[in-house]
Structure formats: C-alpha cells, structure tokens
Amino acid sequence: MEVRYLDSSEKKRCRSLWEEAFPEDSASFVDYYMEEKTKDNRILVLEENGRILSMLHRNPYEVYAGDRLWKCDYIVGVATAEAGRRRGYMRRLMERALADMRAEGMPFSFLMPAAKEIYLPFGFTFIFDQPEWELPAMRIQDSTLAVRQITGGASEELMESAGRWMERWLGKRYEVFTRRDAEYMRRLIKEMESENGTLEEIQKKGKTAGFLETWGLDGQEQRLLLAEPPLLREKGRARPAVMARIVSLPDFVKVIRLAEEAPAERLVFCLEITDELLAENQGVFRWTLDRTASFLERMSAAEDGKDTSGIIKIHIRDLTAWLFGYRVPGKLPAEAVFIRPIRGVFLDEVV
C-alpha cells in the first residue's frame, strides 16, 4: 500500500469513490467539483495495486484572521471504499495530511463533519455555529427594494464588487472568514448553478443591501444570506457546523494578544500542551503576550515556569476552541482572563 498525492492528470480517478461514499451528491454537483475544485486542491490517497482505497481532499482557502491573511486547507472528501473500512486507512491519511500542513506552516485546518466523533480523536473541535437568518416579509412589500441575479457570466468588476461588499459586511462582525475575491465569487456561483441555484443581490434605493444564495434540485433551500438590518433577522438557533484544529501553533498564536484592559504591557505563561498527532505542538512552552501579538518558545526540562504568570495545561483540542473564542476551558490561571482570543468566526464553505 502507498500513501501519496495524486497529480493533476489523476485527480478524476477518485470520482467513483466519491460517488460511492457520498451518494447524496447529485451528478451535476460532482461534475462541478471534479471540474472546478480539483484545479487547485491536493488529493491524498491510499492505493493498493493502482486502486484508490481511501482519500482525503485538501481544498485551499485564503482566510482572514484579524489583520493577517492565512492560507488554510479545508478538509473534505474523506472517504474509504466499503471493502476497506475499519482498517485505519483514514487515520493514515489524516496523520499524513496534518504532518504536511504543519511542515508548511499552516496555522489551522477546518472541516464540516458528518459526525463530530470521527474527528475528535484527531484534535478537531467545533469553532463555528451556523446562524439561521431570514429576510422578513418587508423584502417584498418595500418598494425601495430590488433584486438582481448575478450569473457566472457576470463581469469581473461585478464579481469584485460583490466580494468586497461581503468582506466588508463580515469584517464588521467577525475576525475569521474566507477571502471573497472575484475568483471566489465566480466559483461560488458555479457551485450554486450546479444544483439550479442562484446568487441574488438585494438592492435598496439602488445600492447593495445584501446577498442571498439558494440552491437545490429537489426544492430550493437557502445557502447564504448576508444583509444589513432591518432586512436580516434571526430565524432559529445557530447550530454547530464547522470544526477546526490548530496545526502550526507558533504561526497561529501570532494573532492572539493581550486584552486592552490587561494590567501589564506584557504577560508570560507556561503553556503545557498535549497533542498526540503533532510532536511539534506537544510539550512545554513559554508563551509571551503583549497588546499586538504573542509568541512561543519551547522550554527546556530545567525550566519550571516560576517566572511566568501561571501554568496552563491543556489539550490541543481545548486550546483550539479557546483561542477561536468558541469555548473557555476550566482551570485557567487568574491572569488568563486578559488573554484576548479571536472574536467571531464565520466559515460557511461546503467544499
């Protein structure tokens, strides 16, 4: 058996395994995926005698994280042929993928799980709850509102304008979200159109006031809604949707800093991390934070952390949830309240 990445000419060989593992995906959507997403993704496979037994797709995204723009992989298409399941093939691929991402200095990786139990052992944890929003009836009743459909044939200028509007809207509310340039928008529209979907621009008095995406072959459903109040309102309770795990810890902590109300210009903690899969993340570190950033230094066995503000013993999974601002772990030193995690995550990509 061999674990390797497919080259560009081989990628469509994984279609039969995709169709076996994900029968709910329509043929038109799989056509879109194999034609569009495989242009720039990396597909890791486990092969035997030329047959693909298991696969994992690394789909690249540019992700804003505060004032930084990171390249992060979205893991999708994790599947094993029925005849080879429960033999540890997925684990081999996941361990290889995470090790490669770590070597590349990738701050984190994310995915949308079919079941969280599959990915918890690999250090993944939820970081984003998908909100459920709707447009109230005033959308129809308000004569100042209009709707314009944006198709895949739209101009580069219109694509860029739509993407900039979305980025501004997200940037006011979240610190982590994917970059929406013209290429992102064009690909998103192709994805919608693969299942009879549309992207609509909502205009109020001739100016952009929001965007609505719907798709579905067996009945249209809302895929995305971004709009200015009062057009937007909550429809239901947000649900856990996206999991992530920190991959390159030294790169990730650069966006974490002290809160403005911290009593000192700098705080230092002893950070003891458990990470069973990535040895580079496991161990004891001196974590120094100020109001602009933070950095890590691995501590030697002779150091005991007496010159720090406290010892934080934590699993990489709990550290990920904490630093993404999703969940605060228990048993933190008192001074840890002044550590400012990320405030706001919006990652709603499907593939």
Rank of each mutant, 00 (worst) to 15 (best):
E2I: 11
D7K: 12
S8W: 09
K11M: 11
K11Y: 09
R13A: 09
R13L: 13
W18G: 04
E19Y: 03
E19C: 06
E20I: 01
A21Y: 05
F22C: 03
P23V: 04
S26M: 12
F29I: 08
Y33M: 12
K37L: 14
K37N: 13
K37Y: 12
N41K: 08
I43F: 07
L44F: 11
V45R: 00
V45Y: 03
L46E: 10
E48S: 15
R51T: 15
R58T: 08
Y61P: 02
D73M: 00
V76S: 07
T80H: 00
A81I: 08
G84E: 10
R86H: 06
Y89T: 04
R92D: 08
L93G: 00
L98Q: 08
A99V: 07
D100S: 08
A103F: 05
G105H: 07
P107F: 01
F108E: 03
F110D: 00
L111M: 06
M112P: 00
A115E: 11
E117H: 07
L120F: 08
G123F: 03
F124Q: 02
F124D: 04
F126V: 05
D129I: 00
Q130I: 13
Q130S: 14
E134C: 11
E134T: 12
M138F: 10
S143C: 12
L145F: 12
A154E: 13
L158I: 14
L158P: 04
M159L: 15
E160L: 14
L170P: 04
G171I: 13
R173K: 12
T178D: 08
R179L: 15
R180V: 02
E183C: 11
R186A: 10
R186M: 10
K190L: 13
K190C: 05
N196S: 13
E200L: 13
I202L: 14
I202G: 03
Q203H: 13
Q203C: 12
K207I: 10
A209V: 01
A209T: 08
F211M: 10
T214M: 06
R223Y: 08
L224S: 13
L226S: 03
A227D: 03
E228Q: 08
P229E: 13
E234A: 13
K235W: 13
G236N: 12
A241L: 10
V242A: 05
V242N: 05
A244K: 03
V253C: 01
V255M: 06
I256Q: 06
R257Q: 07
L258H: 03
P263K: 09
E265P: 07
V268N: 00
F269T: 00
E272P: 02
E272K: 15
I273H: 01
D275F: 03
D275Q: 07
L277M: 14
N281F: 00
N281V: 04
N281D: 11
N281K: 05
Q282L: 09
T292G: 14
L296Y: 11
D304H: 15
T308L: 04
H315F: 14
I316M: 10
L323V: 03
G325F: 00
Y326R: 05
R327D: 04
P333W: 02
A334M: 01
A334P: 02
A336F: 04
I342N: 02
R343Y: 03
R343W: 07
G344S: 10
V345S: 04
L347Y: 02
L347K: 00
E349T: 09
V350P: 00
V350E: 12
V350R: 12
